[in-house]
Computed example of a mutant assay.
Amino acid sequence: MIRRLTPFLVAAVLGGTALAQDAKLKIATVDMQQLFKEYYRTEEAQQQVNVERARIQKELNERQTRVQEIEEELKKLRKMMEDPSINDSKKQEIQRDWGMKQNEGIAIDRERREFQQRRTQALNEKMVQRMKGILEEIRKLVEEQAKKEDYDYVFDKSGLSTSQVPFLLYTKDATDITPTLLVDLNKDAPKDGATTPAATSGEGE
């Protein structure tokens, strides 16, 4: 998730007025990945996603169980059709039942696979939007802190290029504002032992 959203994290540049040539820039760095990972709302979001995934899996298991039950019923019907003691009229009836049962199993299995794809896609989209919202909260806090401390530039030191090389290789006299921001982000975090309300509403089918 964090890697997919890395472009969203790339260095926020603040300030816009031209500086005198001999002016000294006031620069700060921030570790956006650390802020994202250690923000309590990120963990809450992940817990809610895990609850929803477990709910989806439970429903998938129930559908799979029904498919397996039909497979067992089909085996019994096939044995009956192969029984030489059963007359042709009865065998034709059993064959019709077998065909209907087979179609039922195919339909249920197809619905199960469509259900899995639909619900998983919806959950993934929901998670991406939630994480983007959290990242936007963090970005705004970084901007507010930068303005408050009158920084000219704030660079994300966790940002990587497409070749996985850090964008920020060296800064002189830069202040790391990550610890200060972490304190601010987690000031309203639940106390130890407090439970996070789990998502109770399922995604629509």
Rank of each mutant, 00 (worst) to 15 (best):
E69W: 07
E59R: 07
E82Y: 11
L14A: 02
I86K: 09
K75M: 07
A20L: 13
G15C: 00
E43H: 05
A18W: 08
I70K: 08
K76W: 14
A11C: 14
R55T: 05
Q57C: 07
L19V: 11
N61A: 14
L35F: 02
I70Q: 00
E69I: 09
E71M: 13
V13C: 06
K37A: 13
M81D: 04
E69D: 10
T29M: 05
D31G: 01
E73D: 15
Q33F: 08
R78K: 15
D31H: 05
R66W: 03
A20W: 09
N50T: 13
L77M: 15
I86H: 07
L74N: 01
N50G: 06
R63F: 04
V51T: 05
Q33D: 02
I56E: 00
P84G: 00
D22K: 14
E38C: 04
A18S: 10
I86Q: 08
V30G: 05
M32V: 06
R53E: 09
L35T: 04
L19G: 10
L25C: 08
V10S: 07
E52Y: 09
V10W: 08
I56R: 07
L77V: 12
A28T: 03
D31P: 02
K76L: 15
M80W: 03
R63V: 04
Q47H: 05
L60S: 01
E72W: 09
L19I: 07
L19N: 12
R63Q: 06
M32D: 03
E71L: 12
Q21E: 08
V49K: 04
T29L: 11
Q47V: 00
R63S: 04
Q46F: 10
E38F: 00
I86R: 02
E73Y: 13
K76A: 12
V30M: 04
D31F: 01
E62S: 15
E72D: 14
N87K: 09
S85N: 06
R55K: 14
